[in-house]
């Protein structure tokens, strides 16, 4: 049963990702991206990463996807149906990415991954919180500075000249 759910989630993720990159209507691509992001959150649940799955939905679906849809709405004239846009050189790009995928597939099946078994944790939030304030304190602070910088930069860029 769990196997079946896993492969359904995997299929939804992959197929909607293909829809994102192949569709010519940009707004449909954004809606397909929603399903991809939810599928990835489902994969995180299968990987026992409950906190990351929640953050994925909060930040990606609630933040980034809304920003992307705002961007689409602001940069296209809805009346003149210019949301449609074509891709170019799909043949060459398809061949290159197909062979790159074959390369990755051979690499991941041939590689001798080192495994060690683990028991399923009750929750990861506590451990993540402890790690963020002990071992990873400096990256945590740096990334908060980076967020502040991005916030100011985005505000300055989108304010326009006055």
């Amino acid at each position: 049963m769990a196997d079946l759910v896993f492969w359904i989630i995997a299929a939804v993720t992959i197929m909607s990702a293909a829809f994102v990159v192949l569709n010519n209507q940009l707004i449909y691509s954004a809606v397909a991206l929603l399903f991809t992001l939810f599928g990835v959150a489902g994969l995180y649940v299968f990987l026992w990463a409950d906190f990351i799955a929640g953050i994925q939905i909060l930040v990606y679906v609630g933040g980034i996807l809304v920003l992307v849809i705002f961007g689409i709405m602001l940069t296209n004239k809805i009346k003149s149906v210019r949301i449609s846009h074509k891709s170019m050189q799909q043949g060459v790009g398809g061949v290159v990415t197909f062979w790159f995928f074959i390369f990755l597939f051979i690499a991941l099946t041939k590689a001798p991954w080192a495994f060690s078994d683990a028991v399923e944790p009750v929750g990861t939030v506590r451990e993540i919180g402890v790690l963020l304030l002990t071992d990873f304190l400096l990256p945590f602070e740096i990334i908060s500075l980076l967020l502040l910088g991005a916030l100011i930069g985005a505000a300055v860029l989108s304010r326009g000249e006055s």
Binding site: V68, K86, S87, M88, G93
Partner: peptide, 24 residues
């Protein structure tokens, strides 16, 4: 699954002409 997602994203980045689609 992740290599498949990566290749699809790479395909989108190198074939799309719309900047927002590249971002996706």
């Amino acid at each position: 699954i992740s290599s498949m997602l990566f290749c699809l994203g790479l395909f989108g980045v190198i074939t799309r002409r719309n900047a927002i689609a590249v971002l996706m």
